[in-house]
Design a protein around this nucleic acid. Structure first.
Length: 641
RNA sequence: GCCGCUUUAGCUCAGCUGGUAGAGCACCUCAUUCGUAAUGAGGGGGUCACAGGUUCGAGUCCUGUAAGCGGCACCA
């Protein structure tokens, strides 16, 4: 057989030769340094026989493509360590994940945090033992028998559930064995010691809460210690951006026990909200939306009609009056919007009707899912429903994709990609319906210049949807924005319009949101900007800080002048050193500090200091008002000037 | 909801093997008028999450509850 090397050279080899043997034929040091082979684009163990003509490439340990294998192997080293230290613990699965790995164990007594250093220590010993890692192909039934015999019920179950055609491979690592697909590094030595066990968690077997709960140990692993250190530093940095910390230190909002998942917005946080809401309102007005407001609490019979009582009840805040009337806080705005659509007669001439609401919703979310502003029980959606004809879906969707990308960009985030969530296993509607629906959303995205990423099976049970994923400043991804097709609710609630031929027709609804919820989006913005908002969003835009009390009356004038220019300005005339004031307002992330002393008071100037820079810009007060006034314009208002 | 961890002053945290609470920042008062990231001195402030229990004695040990944190599940 013939192998082709990356430089294009081709050489003949005996069929079934291993990659390692090929490497040794080239140079012993290559064979020693190689971590994995890439055969026709697939990562393979070095000792795996090559069965026919192929392209071959050797990957060294520092190759980025090897990192996942290092992580996967580290999880195996951990599993070996755990089984040595805690006999009777069963292994289940242990994959590489982003930045690290985990392994799920079945064990009566849970692990404690104190166990982690012991496990790490044993892992280092296993690395030092330089255990050879070898691949073996086993007979299916023998493998099941073997794993059952040694008490590894989960492994036996995995094999039982594998399709008959699957090759059963077992990796031997010293005296330890694990059922695994591979590939793996040649020995535990090559796994290295740039790892750290990070957290303990419960996790359900096969991700299903009806199954047994396993003990998961998470870790991180890297090719080098330097990479590990850099990662740990990155975690620390991310922690500093945590919106819950910044929310407290910047006095934006708080939450308390009596209102789990409910937000108390403080004046500065609410200012941020108002700025965002005003911006969104202008963008929606310009995009041809009409805004409405629907009731917060509606009778049970209403939710029965909409279908929520049956399907969504556990998540609803239900209340009862003295007279026994049962009502619910709205968990969604859509049924309310359909009421407005249904009120009176609609004509095809009114379509597409884009009905928006900053709708405050309440959902009883499971206690364990609450997380700062990101997952709350009371939230306000930037919701809208587009009522349209079927032939308008593509155009409306395309317009929405464009609007969403523009708004995300204005708010400091790029739409990283758009998911097209397709038909789930359990679904309503025919295959023809799904073909058509998925086709329309995909076409619309492409019309708007976006190639959607297919999220197989992630759609709602009655229709597909588009999800917009944005990336923040430190590379984290957030799902913000969604568009969901809906033929069902208009049907349920009897939405109709009169068509050109006088017949009654049913509109299609597009549920759509750009921010998702204000709470969550503001949380994301806080983390994205690390609290240092651009001028137009900052709650306090300028602080006028005096150097001595001599400058106070001039400082007061400066505050008034800047306020007259539309800026949110505060004066700091306290008897404190300018160093102290500069530090305090910098820590509070105020974008501009306008310093005024005796000199400025005499010349009618201000010394502007921008957050993050220690330079000064000395301009006349009027000039400062002009510059900052222009700079503080929201992006949508700036475009027109 | 499930698993693990945590809960001490407004915030961040210290309090060893049980002997009755401490720091920094913040806050208040006084002095200081000082040109770009912390001026000095003084002062006030805690039912140690809550409820039981063990003990002569509990912030410290045990049990339960609640909330927070990290995951899992959930997010039609």
């Amino acid at each position: 057989m013939q192998l082709q090397f990356p430089d294009g050279a081709k050489r003949d080899y005996e069929t079934g030769i291993t990659a390692r043997a090929v490497a040794e034929g080239i140079s012993p040091s290559l064979a020693k340094r190689a971590a994995l082979a890439r055969i026709d684009g697939h990562l393979r163990d070095l000792d795996r026989p090559i069965e026919g003509d192929a392209r071959i490439e050797f990957l060294m340990r520092d190759d980025p493509a090897v990192l996942d294998t290092i992580r996967h192997d580290t999880s195996h080293v951990m599993a070996e360590a755990v089984q040595e230290l805690f006999p009777g613990t069963q292994v289940t699965i242990g994959p590489a994940i982003e930045d690290g790995f985990y392994y799920d164990f079945a064990r009566e007594t849970p692990f404690s945090l104190e166990d982690l250093p012991k496990i790490e220590q044993r892992m280092r010993e296993i690395v030092d033992r330089d255990e050879k890692i070898t691949r073996e192909v086993w007979d299916r039934n023998e493998a099941i028998k073997h794993f059952e015999a040694i008490g590894e019920a989960y492994k036996a179950e995995i094999i039982t559930d594998l399709p008959e055609s699957e090759t059963i491979t077992v990796y031997r690592q010293g005296n330890w064995k694990d059922l695994c697909l591979g590939p793996h590094l040649p020995s535990t030595k090559m796994v290295g010691k740039a790892f750290k066990l990070t957290k303990l968690a419960g996790a359900y077997w096969r991700g299903d809460h009806r199954n047994a709960q396993l003990q998961r140990i998470y870790g991180t692993a890297w090719a080098t210690q330097a990479d590990l250190d850099a990662y740990l530093l990155r975690l620390e940095e991310a922690e500093k951006r945590d919106h819950r910390k910044l929310g407290r230190s910047m006095d934006l909002f708080h939450m308390q026990e009596e209102g789990r998942g409910m937000v108390f917005w403080h004046p500065k946080g609410w200012q941020l909200w108002r700025t965002l809401e005003a911006y969104m309102r202008r963008r929606l007005d310009a995009a041809g939306y009409v805004e409405v407001k629907t009731p917060q609490v509606l009778d049970r019979s209403f939710w029965e009609k909409s279908g929520h009582w049956e399907k969504y009840r556990p998540n609803m805040f239900v209340c009862e009056t003295e007279e026994g009337e049962v009502l619910s806080l709205k968990p969604m705005n859509c049924p309310g919007h359909v009421q407005i659509f249904d009120y009176g007669q609609r004509s095809y001439r009114e379509l597409p009707l884009r009905m928006a609401e900053f709708g405050a919703c309440h959902r009883y979310e499971p206690s364990g899912s609450l997380h700062g502003l990101m997952r709350v029980r009371g939230f306000t959606q930037d919701d809208a429903h587009i009522f349209c004809r079927e032939d308008q879906i593509v155009e409306e969707t395309a317009r929405f994709v464009e609007l969403t990308r523009m708004i995300h960009k204005d708010l400091g985030m790029e739409t990283a990609y758009v998911n097209l969530a397709t038909r789930p296993e359990i679904r309503a509607g025919s295959d023809e319906f799904w073909d058509k629906a998925e086709g329309m959303l995909g076409e619309a995205a492409r019309l708007a210049g976006v190639k959607p990423v297919i999220a197989e099976g992630d759609g709602a049970f009655y229709a597909p949807k588009l999800d917009f994923i944005v990336k923040d400043a430190i590379g984290r991804e957030w799902t913000c924005g969604t568009l969901q097709l809906d033929y069902v609710l208009p049907e349920r609630l009897g939405a109709e319009y009169v068509a050109e031929d006088g017949s009654k027709q049913r509109p299609v609804m597009l549920h759509r949101a750009i921010l998702g919820s204000f709470e969550r989006f503001i949380g994301i913005m806080i983390e994205n900007y690390a609290g240092a908002f651009p001028l137009w969003l900052a709650p306090t835009q300028v602080v006028v800080a005096t150097i001595t009390s001599d400058a106070e009356s001039y400082g007061q004038r400066a505050v008034e002048t800047l306020r007259a220019a539309g800026l949110r300005v505060e004066g700091d005339f306290r008897n404190e050193k300018i160093n102290y004031k500069v530090r305090e307002h910098s820590v509070a992330k105020v974008p501009v500090i306008a310093v005024v002393g005796r000199k400025e008071a005499e010349t009618g100037q201000v010394a502007l200091r921008r957050l993050g820079s220690d330079g000064q810009q000395i301009v006349s007060l009027e000039e400062a008002a002009r510059i900052l006034g222009a700079e503080s314009l929201p992006p949508d208002l700036r475009e027109n000037t």
